[in-house]
Amino acid sequence: MSRYRFLLKKIAWSVFTIFFVLILNFFLFRVLPGDPARAGVKDPRMKKEAVEAIRVRFGLDKPVINCFQSLNPIELGDCAVNPFDTQFFIYLRNLTRGEFGISFHTNRPVSDVLLERLWNTILLIGAGQILSIIVGIAFGVFAAWKARTTIDYSALITGLVAWSLPTFWLGIILLFWGSNNGFPIGGKATPGTSSYPFLYQAGDVFKHMLLPTLTYTIVFMGEYMLVMRSSLLDVLAEDYILTAKAKGLSTFQILKDHALKNAMLPIVTIIAINLGFTVAGAIQIEAVFSWPGLGGAIFEAVNRRDYPVLQGAFLLIAVSVIIANLIADLTYSYLDPRVHSE
């Protein structure tokens, strides 16, 4: 019962958050000078017909939302307009249809551009997260177990240094080193290899992934290690560890059966809170290594002032993070029986 309620509450909250992001996204791009709809109309790269298509698509001749003709707060509009005939509603409707607009730069639908890039980002973040979590936790456990030894102190310092490295800079340094040592200098695959056998292509992608993933792992490993170390130190000082020891369990059994699960709880929270940073890391790494992912799309869109892509990428990233957060919350409640019974 209470577990069910807990689940429901979390999901309802996530839906609300997504809605908030949709509103934020809408108004952000309308209020600030770079409205993709209006900017698009003025963009010299656009053809006449395309401009007209944009007008219709975004309903630019319609009121922004009930009571507001435009976003000028002094100039109130008609409140009695049909709420389904406003820019805001049209924006929502377009989103539900998966229409994010047309890229100024490539003239392709933004959704197409983003979708193929989403998978590349997931590939990079996935590999990087898994590696950094495994490595970080392993070192963290080891450091905590060997507390107050040289191993512990060097792990602590390594973690702090890794945490302090700017992601993009580490990427640059690795790229600099890699480009002099036979690593590919960027991208996801060597150009012109698309007709090669699958295994060759996979190996090629793997080679391209090595340095970005390494950058990612080093940067995020530091924090996971620090959190795991301090969390495990706390757990190992708890009374129930003494109980376990008094029961005659071996060190290994105590670590495995009593300490790790409890110490993992803060890690799950950190992973959830870090999702935002994860994305930040991906943007930087993709920018440095020209990795064709969402972050790279943001980087390029910023430089090309390609607002529809920027808007779409932001929306997609925000919603992904919210969903990932929900998953982390639910995992936490699964791991800790105390959560949903208040």
Binding site: W13, T17, F20, V21, L24, L28, F29, L32, P33, G34, I273, L275, G276, F277, V279, A280, I283, I298, A301, V302, R305, Y307, L310, Q311, A313, F314, I317, A318, V321, I322, N325
Partner: peptide, 20 residues
């Protein structure tokens, strides 16, 4: 606060700075 915490900071900063 929870709401703002979930929305990824850097993309939002990038968007706002890019638009201003």
């Amino acid at each position: 606060t929870d709401l703002m915490l979930v929305i990824p900071d850097l993309p939002l900063i990038v968007v706002i700075v890019a638009l201003t």
